[in-house]
């Protein structure tokens, strides 16, 4: 189940910011990726409205924008949760049982990897090595890094974000 896009004042405000950002780049070549990165930083994800604006400003087709957005895993087409949980599934973390930690998080939040809870509180993703392999297995929630995790520590950690 995907939560509907909220079209409130806040969203409109963000769209305005995207417009301003786009002015900087108008007419420039080879900047699509940078523009999309900035747009996602502003809005949090890249709904079709935003992609249309980008296509118009850079004078490229919407399909080119869409195919670029879907190529890179960093871009989200759907809104993400307030707390973004990323479980490192890099080799060092995997060998130390990251899949079991991931399984426990899925079970606690009742969502699968790639999904967002219905209340838009948590979203859950797997990611590749974040460069903290010494602390494997590693989970990142927004900017907080948790290392040397075991599945049974999951509930207590999630409680910090209630």
């Amino acid at each position: 189940m995907q939560p509907a896009i909220k079209r409130d004042a806040e969203f409109e405000e963000k769209l305005k910011k995207v417009d301003e950002m786009l002015k900087k780049y108008e007419g420039q070549k080879g900047v699509l990726l940078q523009v999309l990165q900035e747009a996602q930083r502003i809005v949090g994800y890249l709904p079709i409205e935003v992609q249309k604006k980008v296509a118009e400003a850079l004078d490229v087709t919407l399909s080119e924008v869409y195919s670029t957005v879907t190529f890179y895993s960093f871009f989200n087409l759907k809104p993400r949760g307030k707390y973004q949980i990323r479980v490192c599934l890099g080799t060092a973390c995997y060998v130390k049982g990251a899949d079991k930690v991931l399984g426990r998080i899925e079970q606690e939040l009742k969502i699968k990897v790639g999904d967002t809870t219905e209340d838009l509180k948590f979203s859950l993703d797997a990611c590749r090595c974040v460069g903290a392999c010494g602390l494997a297995p590693v989970v990142i929630i927004n900017d907080d890094v948790y290392g040397r995790l075991t599945p049974d520590r999951v509930p207590e950690i999630l409680k910090n974000y209630e």
């Binding site: 940078q34 190529f71 960093f74 871009f75």
Partner: peptide, 8 residues
Amino acid sequence: LRLGSGAF
């Protein structure tokens, strides 16, 4: 600088 966007 140019940033990647998560594609190996």
